[in-house]
Design a protein around this nucleic acid. Structure first.
Length: 454
RNA sequence: GUCCCCUUCGUCUAGCCCGGUCCAGGACACCUCGUUUUCAUCGAAGUAACUGGGGUUCGAAUCCCCAAGGGGACGCCA
């Protein structure tokens, strides 16, 4: 069997949409799973709407999500150029081929594909005008996801516009032929177009590739598919909000496909190993940012400490929480005790600012809650302070100090935790308290407790 | 309007091909309890679904038909 060749063919006319990213991803996964080639082809035939800026965004987002291509912009390949705007001569040649066969004709300055079948003129309700209908034989598609789908085209359609530019359906098929594409994996919104494409393949006398039409991603609520306006629709957004690219990619895999073993959060190598087109779903899926956020949190907590530090350091530096003079060792020490509690990179600065500055924010709700349990917080801290001051600065000794004070004052040791946490961090929750005390250090801790108690 | 696709908890889904093991399993969310803390972790428990109607069958989430609902396509956009 010949090698799998798949392609992702975006047109740079807008931001990189989550649906496009998922289509690219499934193609990429299939190529990597089968050891085939993943080709990136830029469909920039619409001169009016194309832009360099959009192209850059698409390329950047592909890199960010870790989807590398074997042929295409920047890497070349044997079937280039990979920009359709540079392939016009080829399209003209191929059009002539169809014209010579009598399958393409010129009308109103444009070139049309001639369908084979009986013709009649009828009034079309949708178009609100008289049109020429053709009774063409239905095209039969054996879709890898949908199964057998039959559909008949009933009108000739445009191949080349009157301005001399070819249209999508034509260039898409010509390039799939020329680039020897074996599998076309694309969104279900193209399912109805496939009969057109099959007609073109037939006109060329070429066997079409295998098709797999994957389900669409629907809005979280409300009708219809995700559109660029919807929150969470653009890949850029996740980049800005410090999502882990691996997590975004992982969640995207779950939208339209389920691994056989039921595991959801897993490394990309594992997904590549398990990915099968036959397991791709047939029904559309609704986008759920909460689940994506969960996948992100899980991924974050599973990161090796060094990698966690690498993703944390930039935002901590940018927000001024961590200065350049903070050593990697110190940063890793702090991150080490919070990682298991962390839920997003975005919230890291506020979460651990108190380790690096005395001017941390104080959570009013946390303060209000203090006296509900454990009584007067300032009194608690005063009770605790002498014993804590005398204690050795390691977790077992600190714990013993809390217990001792609790026993003396007739209270649970935990009655002291919330006041202490608030006094040193301004927060109502966070990482394991004894660990926080240890890492924060004796001097800083005692100073903040003193300040709170006076 | 025409054509195409889809239909299991609020959401993502497993199961469906090869009907009984499913009074339907998991995950997210939610709710409750627990945990060295009172909503960022973690643990335990809970609420919650086979769109409807016919049929086939001893037996249907699973097979067939119809209906309804959802989605998509009908451009000299891609």
């Amino acid at each position: 069997m010949s090698q799998v060749r798949v392609r992702f063919a975006p047109s740079p006319t807008g931001f990189f949409h989550i649906g496009s990213a998922r289509t690219a991803l499934f193609n990429w996964l299939y190529a990597r799973h089968t050891g085939g080639k993943f080709i990136l082809r830029i469909e920039d035939t619409d001169k009016e709407r194309n832009s360099e800026a959009f192209l850059k965004i698409i390329l950047d987002s592909m890199h960010w999500l870790g989807m590398d291509w074997d042929e295409g912009p920047g890497v070349g390949g044997d079937f280039g150029p990979y920009f359709q705007s540079q392939r016009t001569e080829l399209y003209r040649t191929k059009l002539k081929e169809l014209a010579d066969k009598g399958r393409a004709y010129e009308k109103d300055g444009a070139w049309w594909l001639r369908l084979e079948g009986a013709r009649s003129t009828v009034f079309d309700d949708h178009l609100k005008k008289e049109i020429e209908k053709v009774e063409a034989a239905p095209m039969v598609l054996e879709d890898l996801v949908r199964g057998r789908v039959e559909r008949a085209e009933d009108r000739d359609f445009v191949l080349f516009r009157s301005n001399g530019e070819p249209v999508f359906h034509f260039v898409n098929v010509v390039d799939d032929i020329e680039m020897k594409i074996t599998h076309v994996i694309r969104g279900e919104d193209h399912l109805s177009n496939t009969s057109k494409h099959l007609e073109i393949f037939k006109a060329f006398g070429v066997t079409p590739p295998h098709y797999a039409h994957i389900p669409l991603i629907l809005k979280t609520d409300g009708p219809g598919k995700m559109s660029k306006r919807d929150r969470g629709a653009l890949i850029e957004e996740y980049q800005q909000r410090r999502y882990l690219p691996a997590a975004v990619r992982n969640y995207l895999c779950l939208l339209g496909w389920t691994p056989a073993d039921g595991k959801e959060v897993m490394p990309i190598e594992e997904i590549v190993r398990q990915f099968e087109i036959s397991a791709v779903h047939q029904s559309n899926a609704r986008f759920d940012e909460r689940k994506m956020s969960h996948v992100n949190a899980q991924t974050l907590r599973l990161l090796p400490p060094a990698e966690f530090a690498a993703v944390a350091r930039p935002i901590l530096t940018e927000t001024g929480v961590v200065h350049a003079d903070v050593s990697d060792a110190r940063l890793t020490e702090v991150l080490g005790i919070v990682q298991e509690k962390v839920v997003s990179v975005e919230h890291l600065p506020e979460f651990l600012a108190f380790f690096f500055t005395d001017k941390f924010n104080k959570d009013e709700n946390a303060l209000a809650n203090l006296s509900k349990k454990g009584g007067e917080p300032v009194t608690r801290v005063r009770e605790l302070l002498p014993t804590l001051t005398a204690a050795a600065w390691e977790e077992a000794a600190l714990e013993a100090a809390f217990t001792a004070v609790g026993t003396t004052c007739g209270r649970k040791p935990t009655d002291y935790f919330a006041p202490v946490r608030y006094a040193i961090s301004g927060q109502g929750g966070g990482a394991h308290l004894l660990g926080v005390l240890r890492v924060l250090g004796r001097d800083t801790t005692l100073a903040r407790l003193q300040a709170f108690a006076t």
